[in-house]
Amino acid sequence: MSIRRNAASARRPGRSGYGGSLQFEYAAGFADASALLRSGPAPAGPDAKLRMNEHWTRRCLRGARTRRGEHAQLRGRAYADGFAAGLHLPKGAWLPVALTKSAAAVVLAGSRTRLEAVQQLLRLPLQEIVVVLEDGGEEAFTRLRSLPEITIVHTRERLGADVGRTVGARMTDAELILFADGETPVPAERLAGLLEEVQAGSDLALADVGGQLGAFRGWDDAARIRAFMNWSLGRPELHANSVAVLPHAWTRQGMERVGLAQLAVPAMAQRAAIGLQLRIRCLPMHAARKGGALNGNAGGTATATTGARLSAGDHIEALRAAMRENGARLALPDQVRRRFAAEGGGT
């Protein structure tokens, strides 16, 4: 029944491969690209992607349609395919995100870097992709070199956990910065959600790991410590979500208020972001289980135990920093105990 009605009312997929309302988006993309071709020389390489995104953003703003969410992404893909077809480029690669600000990605990579992780980022309208490759070896370096349009920061020695974040962030001047893990590919659709969130006004968009962690009894220690710190700092609704987890996205403004150097110790950055009352949003990554697991520890390079020890140390350091400002009990004073009685003072 429904099939027949669809067949009668909606447009059937044509050469574009898109049916229904998506066909309009495809056609619109094709038309925009054709107009672009008529007005001047064809843009090439990354420029073509950014031009496409520019047109898509304009179209979104003009149309005032829902710019976020799953359906918006579907329409965006149809538009991008149409645009690519109009420019005589292969279809199916781009995922537009309605952005009025420039965006970049910092990828933390080690010797076990997977190209798919970076390839997903290449689908996004990013100005720049900085891959910080620590002690990756020649082989990993060569593999990454095969990818177009990326900047590789290759260090012979390990910078140590998360220092790459600061190094990478210093390499770019984009307004929105996406931090991603080079060892765990995350589909571009989910990363786009983080970019949309910071574009929409949040200072920091975190991946919500709640779905993956499940019941508390199955959590790892690092997650428990993260959740405890958030609670203690007065943000219980953040649960175990933190900048310690990749991926996440910052605005430059938020990042600079926190201080780029702080990024090297994620828990410190998290504390500072909460302390400065930045707008932090958690993006439910409900589909995250289908893709690669989100990575809980620094750069994915540390083993589980060293990762847990590092995380514990980071969070103690962060809590201590908060305690220096607000006292040992932070905002949770003890107003009921007569401690002098315990110390032998009596009543």
């Binding site: 600061t166 190094v167 020890r309 140390g313 103690i316």
Partner: peptide, 17 residues
């Protein structure tokens, strides 16, 4: 210490300054 005894000597903070 400030890290509760969990060192991070491996972390080269000088690069982050």
């Amino acid at each position: 210490d400030d890290r509760g005894g969990y060192g991070d000597t491996e972390r080269k903070r000088e690069f982050a300054r």
